[in-house]
Simulated assay, not measured.
Amino acid sequence: MSKTILKIGITGGIGSGKSTVAKVFQILGIPTYSADDRAKWLMSNDPELRGQILESFGSESFLPSGELNRPFLAKTVFSNPEKVAKINSLVHPAVGRDFEIWSQHQTSPYVLKEAALIFETGGETKLDAVINVSAPLKIRVTRVLMRDKNRSEEQVNQIINQQLPDEIKNEKATFVIKNGPNKLIIPQVLAIHKKLISMDK
């Protein structure tokens, strides 16, 4: 009987550097599922999810070409907490199903699910462990403003305020990687990788 693959979440607030840390795990040969990228793909391509979005947000949710109307949805959803909750209640289960199917086709000792929101959605209950990538707030804001030229500092702070504070995520996480000044991430990744390889399901 084949051994069950461990499912490990990797999360972190915007600008924490979770994608950079995930890339280090990928270099070590660990398959990584990007929940945010797959969510975008599923919203345009998964028939069940498309139907739910149409029903909840109307025909303007999709362009005549069939592509998701991102500007319309962003404008409709972003400033309305109820609509944010509604879109999340549709997208997160679809991503969860997609991740389970993807995981079944992997052969490594563990896989990573990279997602901005894990603890916020209760996603940790379906994972064997969670890594939180943590960084000081000022550094996170600076990183995002340098990376996303179209975002204002106010918008970045709005996103940060919708996510759980680092202190809470660090408490909930199985492992914490500190990605601040004078913190080397590779030794931290290698130490966690070694522990995960030796973990028994």
Rank of each mutant, 00 (worst) to 15 (best):
E55S: 14
R97P: 07
Y110K: 02
D36P: 09
M146A: 14
I53C: 00
I53G: 00
D200L: 08
A85W: 11
K172F: 13
K86C: 11
G12P: 09
I159R: 14
A39N: 10
V24L: 12
G58H: 08
G180D: 15
V21I: 15
E124R: 00
I10R: 04
N69F: 03
G58D: 06
N179H: 11
T174K: 10
K113W: 00
E67S: 12
D128P: 02
A94D: 13
P136K: 07
L112W: 01
V141M: 03
S108F: 13
S16Q: 07
K18G: 05
N157E: 07
L145K: 06
S79C: 13
E67N: 13
K126D: 00
V84F: 05
N69P: 05
W102E: 08
P81W: 04
K149C: 08
K201H: 13
K86T: 15
S44A: 15
K183P: 03
P31I: 03
R38I: 14
P31F: 06
V21F: 07
K172S: 09
I159W: 09
S56N: 10
R38N: 14
G123D: 01
I53S: 01
L190S: 06
P165V: 12
H92Y: 12
G123Q: 01
K178P: 02
Q106F: 06
S79Q: 15
K23R: 15
T11C: 13
I168F: 09
D166Y: 06
I101F: 13
A115G: 04
S108D: 13
T20M: 08
P81K: 03
H105P: 09
F25N: 02
